[in-house]
């Protein structure tokens, strides 16, 4: 596995392990992408989903699987995943842009309207992104979920924004 030699997932590697939503599902709007590929004892995502779209079952080392049709892209699972391994991707945000919603636990938390550098899984800056939503309610327990708008072609690659120091 390339992952354990580099620390990041290639899209091909991810899609070989996790069943990702198909293009039809992406066409319908926001949906969760679960980038969890190792059998570790962990299952909070299953209970976090209000519509029962995530299944882990027994034993809890099972990989989570997403039921794409059930998933509403609400993002409840994003802040609950201890591994910060779930994002919500909306490939039909506009004609030319997509959004990615991701957990972001660094100070300063971005604000809506701000422009930030959008980065991929390797920490490379791919493009500029515009922050369109920031959710940080008490129920998220200090894991803010940030939504960034980016050009459509980067929707499968952008996973975070650059931390400001």
């Amino acid at each position: 596995m390339a992952l354990i030699n580099t620390g990041y997932l290639e899209y091909e590697e991810l899609s070989a392990i996790q069943k990702l939503p198909d293009q039809d599902r992406f066409a319908k709007g926001p949906v969760a992408i679960i980038e969890c590929v190792q059998e570790i004892p962990c299952n909070p995502c299953e209970a976090a989903c209000p519509v029962g779209a995530i299944h882990v079952g027994e034993p809890i080392t099972n990989l989570p699987t997403l039921h794409g049709e059930k998933c509403t892209g609400c993002g409840m699972c994003v802040s609950r995943c201890p591994g910060l391994a779930i994002v919500i991707v909306n490939k039909v945000y506009s004609d030319t842009t997509a959004t990615v919603s991701f957990p972001f636990e660094y100070f300063p938390i971005p604000v809506v309207g701000e422009e930030r550098n959008a980065m991929n899984r390797k920490g490379e800056i791919l493009c500029k992104g515009k922050i369109v939503k920031v959710m940080n309610p008490a129920a998220f327990d200090h894991t803010p979920v940030v939504t960034v708008e980016i050009p459509k072609e980067f929707a499968d690659e952008v996973r975070t924004i650059e931390r400001i120091r």
């Binding site: 992952l3 354990i4 920490g123």
Partner: peptide, 12 residues
């Protein structure tokens, strides 16, 4: 765990 390594790598 890969998920911990992923946090480090995407921070660059």
């Amino acid at each position: 765990y890969a998920v911990h390594a992923a946090k480090i790598r995407r921070a660059g």
